[in-house]
Amino acid sequence: MKNKKILKTITLLMVFVLTFSILSGCIRKKENQNEKISDSNDTEAEVNYPMTVKDDFGNEVKIEKLPMRIISLAPSHTEILFKLGLGDRVVGVTNYCDFPKEAKEKEKIGDLMNINVEKIIELEPDLVIQYGEGKEEINNQIRQAGIALLSYEPESIQEVIDLIKEIGKITGAQRAAELTTIEMTSKRDYIIEKVKDAKKPKVFYEVWDDPLMAAGPGSFIDELITLAGGENIAKDAKGKYPQFSLEKLIERNPQVYLGAKEEGKTVEQIKTREGYEIIDAIKNDRVYLLEPNIISRPGPRIVDGLEIMAKTIHPELFK
């Protein structure tokens, strides 16, 4: 009996040792694979240069080498670069680039409407990334200085995700881009699933108050309202940010009234406007002012904007 106990103990020890050896081997193998993946990414980043990139406006731009000095001409692009761990490579930003806080410490080159081209050239960037098509005269000056210029204008969450991957490829930050976009996609899909069976209240988003302007079809806000489980009452308007009459607002009678936090605008101010007292959103105290830099800035935080929108429209689902 004693011999059997000893044999059983030895057998268990052997199983434990064998199992540990197998697990160790698997772990070591996975670590080696990860090292190979890392090496592969590094190699890929090296051999991809020079690379030719086509931006959102069909411009084919040759990137001669890994960009080490980058200027961002839009707050959203600045957020992407910092999110990908490229903050130390950013040498210039606009006056409105305020997130993350480190971006405020970078050299300022003006803003989208008043760009200091001389300052850009003085900073000797390898790459300039702007939002929208830009001004032809300024674009030509940047290109004539031998600086690569890329223009992007994402108009949906998916296009932001695609842009992050693109910037990751261009800058050699593929891994960070992949992790970022996986996180964004997961959050977006979770929220969509959360609200999919909820009743869709009628929503109005005020872009401007005098004249009254709405977030129309094709705008970021329109997509956020829809994905967050609401019905945008301006979804059939002409243009992304159309004028919207008081008569139509009253006729369509939104149940949720949204706007952006800004100086001089308050919920009480909106609620006391002439004619608004018969709107359901006013009567039921469902007027909200949201953080514009999160709600409408097409960068990595746009899924946080979606979450804010969903919690505002459907607070009952996020208790």
Score class of each variant (00 low, 15 high):
residue 164 I to S: 12
residue 154 P to W: 07
residue 292 P to Q: 07
residue 10 I to S: 05
residue 249 L to C: 09
residue 146 G to N: 00
residue 231 E to N: 12
residue 126 D to I: 05
residue 107 E to C: 05
residue 205 Y to L: 00
residue 239 G to K: 02
residue 84 L to C: 10
residue 172 G to Y: 03
residue 281 A to K: 03
residue 45 A to W: 03
residue 4 K to A: 15
residue 247 E to Y: 02
residue 178 E to N: 10
residue 290 L to M: 12
residue 282 I to S: 00
residue 30 K to N: 11
residue 234 A to C: 04
residue 288 Y to N: 06
residue 45 A to E: 12
residue 135 K to M: 14
residue 2 K to F: 13
residue 272 T to H: 10
residue 98 D to F: 03
residue 202 K to G: 12
residue 180 T to A: 15
residue 257 Y to W: 04
residue 68 M to A: 10
residue 4 K to P: 01
residue 209 D to S: 15
residue 275 G to F: 04
residue 223 E to H: 10
residue 282 I to P: 03
residue 285 D to H: 10
residue 81 L to D: 05
residue 69 R to H: 07
residue 66 L to K: 13
residue 199 K to E: 15
residue 138 I to L: 13
residue 267 V to H: 04
residue 163 L to P: 01
residue 64 E to R: 08
residue 153 E to Y: 12
residue 14 M to C: 15
residue 229 G to Y: 11
residue 149 L to Q: 06
residue 62 K to R: 03
residue 272 T to Y: 05
residue 246 L to K: 14
residue 224 L to Q: 00
residue 258 L to T: 03
residue 48 N to T: 13
residue 27 I to Q: 03
residue 162 D to V: 07
residue 113 M to V: 05
residue 70 I to R: 05
residue 52 T to A: 11
residue 43 T to H: 08
residue 65 K to Q: 13
residue 128 V to I: 08
residue 246 L to V: 13
residue 203 V to I: 14
residue 309 M to S: 08
residue 300 P to E: 09
residue 217 P to S: 07
residue 71 I to P: 01
residue 99 F to L: 11
residue 238 K to Y: 08
residue 224 L to D: 01
residue 275 G to L: 11
residue 187 K to W: 08
residue 77 H to P: 07
residue 222 D to P: 09
residue 58 G to L: 02
residue 179 L to Q: 13
residue 309 M to N: 07
residue 123 L to C: 05
residue 46 E to Q: 12
residue 205 Y to E: 03
residue 193 E to S: 15
residue 87 G to V: 09
residue 58 G to I: 01
residue 273 R to T: 00
residue 227 L to M: 09
residue 153 E to I: 02
residue 75 P to W: 08
residue 254 P to E: 06
residue 131 Y to K: 13
residue 189 D to I: 02
residue 218 G to F: 05
